Simulated scan of single mutants.
Amino acid sequence: MRYLIFAFIGFVVFASFTTPKIKKEKTTTTPKTAYFAEEVNIPFLRNDFVGFKEALAFKESQGRYRVVNKLGYLGKYQFGRETLKRFRIYNTSYFLKTPELQEKAFVAYCKVNKWILRKDIKRSVGRTINEIKITESGILAAAHLSGAGNVKKFLRSNGAIRFNDAFGTSIESYMKKFGGYDVSNITPDKKARV
């Protein structure tokens, strides 16, 4: 019994050092009292291309480079084998073991998609389709999900032609989830290489 009491006291002391202190603070937006943590370590992604690619990678593979899903899509960004062939990447084993190659392939794919969709980006950014504000990053994310051709059909039909991948994920959900990132540093390039 004595050991149980010491263990409990040790846990309470440990917990008091590891949990964030809570500060009672009144807010101006609601009449009720709100509580906020003084120190919280929450990962923060910037609103730039790095934030965009890391958010997309987390959705695709939880940011894991060596993952292959049940449909055979590969790596951190879940590339299909045909897409990799476009960049002259044929050795998928090597691709999975090489994070730098995966990062370069993602940038190249964004450049190609931005070139393919350049006119649609110019016409569509700022519009609202099916209650989704269209942004350049949303378009690039949707192209990563479904291919640039399906995104063209969606935009040019004003959202009437829709696409879902094999898991039921829609172009619209990617446009909404990944909208608003600054991807202006990605230049359109028809012949982007890895």
Rank of each mutant, 00 (worst) to 15 (best):
L56Y: 02
L117D: 00
K26F: 13
L56C: 09
D48N: 04
Y77E: 05
K70Q: 14
N113T: 03
Y35R: 07
N41V: 09
F52I: 13
F58T: 08
K59P: 00
K26E: 11
K70Y: 09
C110G: 00
G126V: 06
T28E: 07
F36L: 13
I89W: 01
P99E: 11
R118G: 03
G72Q: 01
K114L: 06
G80D: 06
R118W: 01
W115S: 07
E54T: 05
E39Q: 07
R64S: 11
Y73R: 01
I121Y: 06
F17E: 02
S16D: 02
E25T: 10
F95R: 03
T30W: 01
R46S: 07
E100F: 07
F14C: 09
V125Q: 04
N113C: 13
F44G: 06
Q102E: 14
E54F: 03
Y73T: 03
R86N: 13
V112N: 02
T28G: 10
K21F: 08
L74C: 04
E82V: 04
T18Q: 06
Y94Q: 08
I22F: 02
K119S: 09
G75T: 02
S61T: 00
T128Y: 06
W115C: 01
N47D: 13
L96C: 03
P99W: 14
D120S: 12
Y94P: 01
F79P: 01
R81W: 02
V40P: 00
T30F: 08
T83R: 03
L45C: 12
C110S: 12
Y65H: 14
K70M: 09
R64L: 13
